[in-house]
Every structure is written in structure tokens, then in C-alpha cells.
Amino acid sequence: MPSRPSKSPGGGLGRYILVRALLIIPTVFILVTLVFVLMRTTGDPITAALGGRLPADQLQERITEAGYDRPLIVQYLEYLGQIFTGDFGTTITDNRPVTEVLLTYGLATLELVFYSLIVAFVIGIPFGMIAAYFRDKGQDAVLRVFAILAYATPVFFAGLLLKLVFAVWLKVLPVAGRASTGPEIQMEVLPNNTGIYTIDAIMTGDPAVLADVLAHAVLPSIALGLLTAGVFLRLVRTNVIGTLSTDYVDAARSRGVSEYRLVRKHAYRPALIPIITVMGLQIALLLGGAVLTETTFEWKGLGFQLAEYLQARDFVAVQGIVALLAVIVALTNFIVDIIAALIDPRVRY
């Protein structure tokens, strides 16, 4: 009787990638639809932003000009068509294309999220391994409490504490902004070709400018990174402990391998797999936390702009920013899923 052909790993990976790629479409569609419906629950965006500030005839004229007096389904279909062409509308308060706002401030938020992930890795992974090494001892208890506090502490409160200690009391780090505007470091020296200040500072060739930009990124990155560091710490601890109880680790232990070497050599890599699998969710968490972090530190990114547009009730701008963040989260989850499938073939099936 002929044997059944074995399942091709490449084919399994290919199907997995295809399925995950196709899932992006309904995910983004549902998120964009929810944002549109929620933004319309308050009425048309013109009245929400300018009601009471314009005469009734001018208000109605602007509503008609923008097409907000048409049936909701027509507006929705038109909005979907605009998104597919990269048109997210025009802001009501400052009459700017939402796409311009996204391009101007989006890279600043991505820069902050990148630094926050570095903080989360630097704190979460080593502390998680230390907690696993000292399982059920004093060090483990302290680190577990730290993980809970890091995750549970509101981002804005952590930011205010960091500003109080390092900017007000110790005066070693700047209190707000992305770069200095005083006589020592002038913003005009940044070519601002990319929108990412770190790259722009490197392009100047001046170490003082780069040091100034990095110093401004320290406190907001720590405030936002602690949110994810607590998650990483607990994940690493749990998975390192689980790996240390496997048969092959017991065999290595019976050969006289030290516990430190077992943690560093045998349990380290398996503990990283769950971190990669939850990375997409953590990106979403960081993007959400960026709103409060950027507002606290006056970091001029999408979160800062989103807070300002919310205060102004400019729901066209809010709708565009949230839609873009939804697309970023969906694409990030897709990339993370592919990386996880490459590292651990069991994920594909």
C-alpha cells in the first residue's frame, strides 16, 4: 500500500502566509467601518467641529459642500473608495489633507514606538530570565511585583513621575519636546528630510545634536516601554521555567550543567518565541499608549495630534488617524505572524 505523501513544510508556510495576508482585508474593513460608524454617532463632522461658531446658513453651506447631507450609506461607500486611493479627507479645523498630517507626524510616533520596544526588550527579557533563575525567591517576588506595577501604572502617571525625578529634581534630562529649541541646539540645524529626528540628527554630522535628540527620547521611551516590559518579563519568566522542566534540560542537568548555563543556553531561545507571537498586540498597545505619552511629553507625533483633534472635535482628522493606526496594527500582526511561523514551524498548522 503506497505511503501518503508527507506534508511539505514550504507548502504549509505558503498556505499560512496566504491565509494571513487574506485576513488583513476583512480586519481592516471591520476596523475602518467601526471607526466610521462611531464618528458619525455624533452627527456630521462639520456640525460637531464648528457648530455654534458659524451662522446657520454658513454651517449648512459647508455641510452641503462636504456632502454630509447625503445618505449615510453613500458617505460610507465614498469614504471606502477614498481610503483605497490613499485619500483620508481634509481636516476641518486647519483645512489640511489628513494624508499630510499622517506623513508629517506618523514617523515621529513610529520613532517613539521603536525606542519604547528597545526599552521593553532591555528591561523585560533580562529581568524575566533573572526571575526564572531565582524562582520563588525574594528576587523573583520583587521582579513579579515590578512587572505588575509596570503594566498597571498609567502611562501619563509614569511620565509625570519620570519628569519630576529626572527633569525637575535631578535636571539631567529634558522635560519635553523632541529636540532643544534654545541657543545651544537650534532646531534649524536639522535638515528634517525624513521626519525621524534621530536620522536627521545623524545627517548633520554633529554629535551634540544627536546627543540632544536622544536625550529627549529617553523619558518618553521609558514611560511607554515600561508598559510592554512588564508583559515581556512575565512571558520570559513563565516560558524559561517551563523549558527548565523539560526532559532534555533534566538530562543536561544530570550531566552537571550549571543552572545558570541551562537558563542562558537552553531556555533563552524558546522563551523568545511567545514574545514574538504577542509582538503585534504589543505594537497596538504602544500605539494606544503613545497618545498619552506624546501629550505628556509634548512629543509632536500622531498621538499628540490625535489628542488635539479630539479636543477640537475634528472627527474627519480623528477618523483618518485611527484608520491609519488600524492598518499599521493589521500589517504588524501579519509580519509578526510570519516571523513566528519561520521560527517555530508548529505555528503554521
Rank of each mutant, 00 (worst) to 15 (best):
G106E: 14
L302F: 09
F88D: 00
I73D: 04
L80G: 12
T99G: 13
M203T: 00
V122S: 08
H216S: 06
Y105K: 04
D94L: 06
D337N: 06
W299A: 07
T47C: 03
I24S: 07
L310Q: 08
L342R: 08
R313D: 08
A141N: 12
I222Q: 00
Q82G: 14
G86R: 02
Q139C: 12
P2R: 11
R178V: 12
T42D: 08
L173K: 02
A267R: 00
V155K: 00
T85N: 12
F114N: 06
I92C: 02
S3F: 13
I339T: 12
A201E: 07
V278E: 11
D314I: 04
A290H: 02
V74I: 11
A284S: 15
P274I: 04
P274W: 03
A217N: 07
Y105C: 00
I17E: 05
V32A: 15
L103I: 12
F29Q: 04
V213T: 10
Q319N: 04
T91P: 02
R53A: 12
I25L: 12
R20I: 05
M203W: 05
L80E: 11
I24Q: 08
A131G: 05
Y115S: 02
A217S: 10
T181D: 12
F156W: 10
L50G: 09
S221V: 03
D57K: 13
M187V: 10
S6H: 10
G43A: 05
R62Y: 01
I125L: 03
G52P: 11
L112D: 04
M39N: 10
A120L: 00
D200I: 01
R261T: 05
I63L: 03
G303W: 01
Y133G: 00
A141Q: 07
R253M: 05
L286P: 09
G124Y: 08
G177N: 06
L160M: 13
A66D: 12
T277N: 09
L54Y: 05
A167F: 03
L112I: 03
G10L: 14
D206K: 13
V28I: 15
A201K: 01
V278T: 15
D206T: 03
P154S: 05
V165C: 09
L72T: 15
P97W: 01
V231P: 04
L235M: 15
I83K: 02
V336F: 01
S6C: 00
G320Q: 01
T181Q: 14
R178K: 13
L233F: 06
A150W: 00
A312E: 11
V122L: 10
L281Y: 11
G14E: 09
T198H: 08
F166P: 04
Y349A: 14
I123T: 03
V209A: 10
I283E: 04
P2E: 14
I283S: 05
L18S: 09
Y260Q: 13
P97S: 12
F315V: 15
T243L: 00
V347Y: 05
K7R: 14
D57Y: 10
I123A: 01
A179Q: 10
V165D: 08
A229P: 08
I83Y: 06
E100I: 02
V175T: 13
D87E: 10
A158R: 00
I273S: 04
S245T: 10
V336Q: 02
A211M: 08
A120G: 02
P191Q: 10
M203E: 13
F121C: 05
I335N: 06
V240L: 09
G159A: 06
E308L: 15
